[in-house]
Design a binder for these strands. Structure first.
Lengths: 250, 250
DNA sequence: GGTCACGGGATTGTGCACAAAACGCGCCAG
DNA sequence: CTGGCGCGTTTTGTGCACAATCCCGTGACC
């Protein structure tokens, strides 16, 4: 057989699928992000195909893509389900985010002030959007914007590769939040984001500017993770034998 | 339509495809890693299907997977090609590796010494393997082992998510090396790895143990990147108009 | 002599139809 | 009444065949 040795190396778009596909990926991705599709939900191929008005194999391809990004879980002969991270995986995702976002904030912190006008403008624009969503009590929008904020910072840091990785991690942390959030409070971080923008835009006169934004980001991520209930939550089926051990009559 | 709200959330294998698929992915991945398939090589579906004795759609799925990992580039109606990173992308990949591997080394460095016997054993086992490959002059094996070494460290750090991300980055940096390596030297890092293992196993008596392994890793990655020729290499086709501008008769 | 246009061949993309597997339900036995 | 078994239906998996697109070689025209 002949494998063309070093054929013409073409350069063109890498992400752009046939459009409709990307649209479905994003649509499902957002639905998962804002909890309309909670972890564990079955994603039947036929249903999705009808909803989006495409053929089943198109849906199949999308599902394969999302599975690769760990947003859905593919079980052979069973189908696709919205991924339900384990507590361990949730911790790992947040740890990974800390690693990457610390690096991003350090890069941003090293940027010359004042920030480039385009950057500052987009930051403020985003801040306005978050405040609007907050005022309107639009929780779904707030969640989506919160993710976009972190991605925006990654973009400003200038490393598209890291930004792409972080994008996946953000999606997965959204999943983790959906799976492990407590019934109780969560300030949803709009205030945290405000402070972060402030620290980036103007580190202050004499405060130890060094790493202020970094510190804020680490605290921000810690806050989010701490709002989750990641204690040992063995699956119900596992508990049965220990719960009822020697207590059949009790 | 009815989307089962919070259906039974099953838990089972997430990675395990039908086996044959994973085998093909790994096979192609390794072929790319050790330069048997240089960047730009066309990967015709039919040929691959015959080589691996599977149907074309199976190959198609594998190609889609590899494309998601940025190891191959999919061009609509043109086919699949071994990815040829741009210089910018290569720099980004190495930057990302520095970010992640620094975190990994810091975690490892915080580990109590002496290292757990299992860890030390596998480290030494790997060292032996690399030395054997080095002695035998087996370049392909050395490349593969070099990647495995970094992945091994990530594994010891205990974060499977980060390890998975790093795995992709290692594959892509292999691609970058294939695309940009200079004709000249490269000590292939076996010595660097030895020193890294030593620093991890025994930081030394009074040396500033703090961060010694981290420092070595950063230097190691810098060394690799510096051996590449990442200077501006505009594509030939772009140069045409500037090269021949007003010089038709010369 | 060079450039453009067209057509053959090959390769990728897509839908369809069938095969395999799993789930749910009902039936039967204990 | 409870537990197990077996069948039917639904859903997923796979291969095939056709349609669309692109590359390349040939020929005509300027």
């Amino acid at each position: 057989m002949k494998t063309a040795p070093t054929a013409a190396p073409p350069r063109r778009a890498s992400r752009g699928r046939s459009g409709a596909e990307a649209r479905i990926v994003q649509s499902i991705g957002e639905a998962i992000a804002d909890r309309r599709l909670p972890p564990g939900t079955k994603l039947a191929e036929e249903s999705l195909a009808q909803v989006f008005g495409v053929s089943r194999e198109r849906v199949r391809k999308v599902l394969l893509l999302l599975a690769q990004r760990r947003v859905v879980t593919l079980i052979p002969n069973r189908g696709a389900f919205v991924a339900k991270p384990t507590a361990r995986e949730a911790r790992e995702v947040f740890e990974a985010r800390r690693v990457i976002e610390r690096a991003i904030m350090e890069t941003l912190d090293r940027l010359a002030r004042p920030l480039p006008p385009g950057v500052l403008a987009r930051l403020n624009e985003h801040r306005a959007r978050e405040e609007a969503a907050e005022a309107a009590g639009d929780r779904k929008a707030l969640i989506r914007l919160s993710g976009q904020f972190h991605l925006l910072l990654a973009e400003f840091a200038g490393n598209a590769t890291l930004a792409g990785i972080l994008g996946d991690l953000i999606d997965r942390s959204g999943l983790a939040i959906a799976a492990f959030e407590r019934r109780s409070s969560h300030s949803c971080s709009a205030e945290d984001h405000r402070r972060l923008i402030d620290a980036l835009a103007d580190p202050g006169p004499d405060r130890n500017r060094a790493g202020e934004a970094v510190r804020l980001m680490m605290e921000h991520l810690d806050t989010i993770e701490r709002q989750l209930d990641l204690e040992a939550k063995p699956e119900p089926l596992i508990d049965l034998k220990s719960v009822f051990a020697g207590a059949d009559g009790e």
